[in-house]
Design a protein around this nucleic acid. Structure first.
Lengths: 234, 234
DNA sequence: CCAAAAGTGTTATGACTACACCCATGA
DNA sequence: TCATGGGTGTAGTCATAACACTTTTGG
């Protein structure tokens, strides 16, 4: 969370300006649902046994983006090179942190579940994944931050190639469709989806198939470009 | 701009955290073009005789939004109640302010030219309007901020009712069309525009006409709702 | 009566939606 | 041979884009 700013608070000098923090809503897709990365929060007496987003103070020697990179590794315990990050919104309510004035620059991060190591997938006491449908009570204004992040994700995925950051490098069309279904929370017609996504010429078909399941093998695709760009709505 | 943070700089205590500022890209439409509000910047030796966005430090006792409201009045010299404001992006490059570490939460503001008083329309030495096509050299990273604000404006106007914040309370369909043309920088077919905008049922036709010009009188409309909401793309 | 902008419809094309069956594999 | 998901096409509807002329007023 916000690190030990309780020490800062005793020093009035530093309260002449707001403290700047970064918080990250780190998304993945697992079992056809959106999940996000949480850590425990215990700041008595304000927050007892709650969860919160990975985050921490932005140091004067780093940009917000550099801070987020650092925090994804340190707090979310995920290699930041695997995560695609976009700035979300800056939250500056005066009482959002009961310990003092903290302005948070919030980011969304996206990582395919398949890209995570065993350790990164694990649920520890200190950091864990939770599905969006079963979020625990969150500390600070993190419920609001998550709501805004979800809204933005749902909007951005329909007019950009953001889905490429939530799917493995090589994927079947069904797997890509499931990313959209998990994010938008609704079923999509298989035939219409394939027609649309293929017509946009974003994908290249690989000479590979996903085999080994007890069903017809599925052709594998990858995105032509790693860049997230604007496209006509899906 | 950033106010007098030169005094802050002499005090190392305060540099243990970044200083937080708000900058505002205040847009209006005049003579079929986008204009924005600038103020002079003279911070020798870094910025000599440049222009910049109205802005200033966020105080520990106010939210970023409250700060923006205050700065629109104080620095842009426009009554903030006339301005519709949206958060744009937070800029945290370490060297964006040569005098020290300043993180800026940037906002876009929108005001119809017709809503401005004579004083607010005036060009003084200390504050003035400039068309987007003839911007002077800007201090800090304000060129980047303006670019991002323009991109966002162009995108948001096509899928929201943001145009209502750039047009007078009562307007002709041609006037509304001109808002879109000025923002998007391209001509729009009059018949298609009218069909589309009327089909969305956003406007109500008033029992009034704009008369007095040497041409056929035009019917006046207003938006049914003051809220800026999402709509199918124009 | 002239100049200027207001106002109005149609057609062709492309996009979107809804919908059902056969195919290839592993067990 | 069965269960499972992979893969495919059509028709109807709707939205979009292109395009030109008549109307009303003020001067």
């Amino acid at each position: 969370m916000k690190g030990n700013i309780s020490t800062s608070q005793s020093n009035n000098q530093e309260l002449r300006f707001a403290v700047l923090a970064a918080d990250v809503v780190l998304w993945t897709i697992k079992e056809n649902e959106l999940w996000l990365r949480l850590i425990p929060v215990n700041i008595t007496p304000h927050f007892v046994n709650l969860a919160g987003l990975p985050g921490g103070l932005i140091s004067p020697t780093e940009t917000a983006e550099q801070s987020v990179e650092r925090l994804i590794t340190a707090k979310a315990q995920v290699a930041s090179s695997k995560v695609y990050v976009e700035q979300l919104y800056t939250f500056s309510n005066i009482n959002r942190d009961p310990r003092g004035r903290v302005v948070a620059v919030a980011y969304s991060g996206y990582v395919p579940w398949e890209k995570l190591s065993t350790a990164e997938r694990e649920d520890k006491d200190s950091v864990y994944w939770r599905p969006i449908s079963k979020l625990p009570k969150l500390a600070y204004d993190h419920k609001e931050i998550v709501a805004k992040a979800l809204e933005r994700l749902q909007s951005r995925i329909t007019y950009s190639t953001l889905s490429s950051k939530l799917v493995d490098k090589e994927f079947t069309l069904t797997e890509l469709e499931q990313v959209y279904e998990a994010v938008l929370g609704k079923d999509i017609d298989k035939r219409n989806f394939r027609k649309k996504i293929l017509s946009l010429d974003l994908l290249k078909q690989l000479n590979k198939e996903r085999r080994g399941l007890k069903q017809r093998p599925a052709k594998l695709y990858s995105f032509r470009s790693e860049e997230v760009k604007s496209i006509p709505t899906i």
